[in-house]
Amino acid sequence: MSRTLLLAEELIARPSVTPEDGGCQQLIGERLAPLGFTLETIASGPADFRVTNLWAIRRSADPAARTLVFAGHTDVVPTGPLEQWTSPPFTPTHRDGRMYGRGACDMKTSLAAFVVAIEEFLAAHPDPRLSVALLLTSDEEGPAVDGTVVVCRELAARGEKLHYCIVGEPTSVERCGDMIKNGRRGTMSGRLTVNGVQGHIAYPHLARNPVHQLAPALAELVAINNAGGWDKGNAYFQPTSWQISNFHAGTGASNVIPGSAVVDFNFRFSTESTPESLQRRVHGVLDAHGVDYDLKWTVGGLPFLTQPGALVSAVRTAIQAETGIATELSTSGGTSDARFIAQVCEQVVEFGPVNASIHKIDEHIAVAEIDTLKNVYARTLAALNALDAAA
């Protein structure tokens, strides 16, 4: 069995449903410390939702060296009904060339591949030009307010310079290496409360129906969205999208005009828009229709984009050399902790295993692709180290 597979099994066997780490970061730290890494645990959050974060770095002797960060999370989503699993979710099990277990894809195998790739790289380059770091959290699958974002704020406050980052999210679609993410859309949610006056439905002149108030404005917002009118996207991003997730009004009685209506919606937006520009447009529509409302905004993450350059080239070349695949660049899908890292790091990409079974019952990974993943990380390390050494 490969060293990467053995470490992945050890990590999967440690239950770590968010925000629990299950000792995963300690295990990884024990592998890194003998290699010269400085380990720092940064805990955050209330006592009943304590998050464990690990910042580990091995600095080059050259003070001008650039830093490559491997980033990921040790927490996993809940298992769901245990009786529906073919084998226990925290007992790594092999069937038909696959390894099953919660976190097999998302993302304990990536973490194991990080560690073994670093071990092999340092064995071959004991005095590298490149500084190497790991940033791990147990709060990626949860609210994500006490995890990577906290570490990034701390690193920024210290003036720590990060140059390259690979986030081990499962980005592949059919085969390991067929897709990497060089950006992600931003996410912003709104909770709109339309104020009306509750009353008897037989006496509408004594009430004010908030649903009727909202309907024309809502129709205009839907029309903007359906026409692709928020923005046109660009070469890397699809157009910004706006969607309603919840709509609540009424008491449940058929003869009562509701006193208020509450609408939850979300933008997934490209780099062609900003939170401020989208907020202005929504407020403009509501105001133009004379809606009596309150609107609270929550920005979950800004969009980021890493243009093709040193990091993208190194990862794509490593994938091509290891698998023969000409990988696709994409900004599709949801958000990840890369949105926080991109605020403090020059170049960020996400690359990891096939994502077809993530968060599902019987989550699994093809065993044959585990060392493929490790080898791509190792090749990328070597390429960036050679690039910096030649600079």
Score class of each variant (00 low, 15 high):
187 T>F: 04
187 T>P: 02
188 M>Q: 09
189 S>P: 04
190 G>W: 06
191 R>V: 13
195 N>S: 10
195 N>E: 13
200 H>M: 12
202 A>M: 02
203 Y>D: 12
204 P>Y: 14
204 P>H: 13
205 H>Q: 04
210 P>E: 07
210 P>V: 12
211 V>G: 05
213 Q>I: 14
213 Q>F: 12
214 L>N: 04
216 P>Y: 14
216 P>D: 11
220 E>A: 08
228 G>R: 06
230 W>G: 08
231 D>M: 12
232 K>F: 08
232 K>H: 15
233 G>Q: 05
233 G>S: 15
234 N>V: 02
234 N>P: 03
236 Y>S: 08
237 F>A: 11
241 S>F: 03
245 S>G: 14
246 N>I: 01
247 F>G: 07
249 A>R: 14
255 N>I: 07
257 I>A: 06
261 A>C: 15
262 V>F: 08
264 D>L: 07
272 E>P: 06
273 S>E: 15
274 T>Y: 09
276 E>W: 13
277 S>W: 02
277 S>N: 06
278 L>Y: 07
279 Q>A: 14
281 R>P: 05
283 H>K: 12
284 G>H: 07
291 V>R: 05
293 Y>Q: 08
296 K>Y: 06
298 T>V: 15
299 V>H: 00
304 F>R: 06
305 L>H: 11
305 L>Q: 10
306 T>A: 00
307 Q>K: 12
308 P>N: 03
308 P>C: 02
319 I>E: 00
320 Q>A: 06
323 T>F: 04
324 G>R: 12
324 G>S: 10
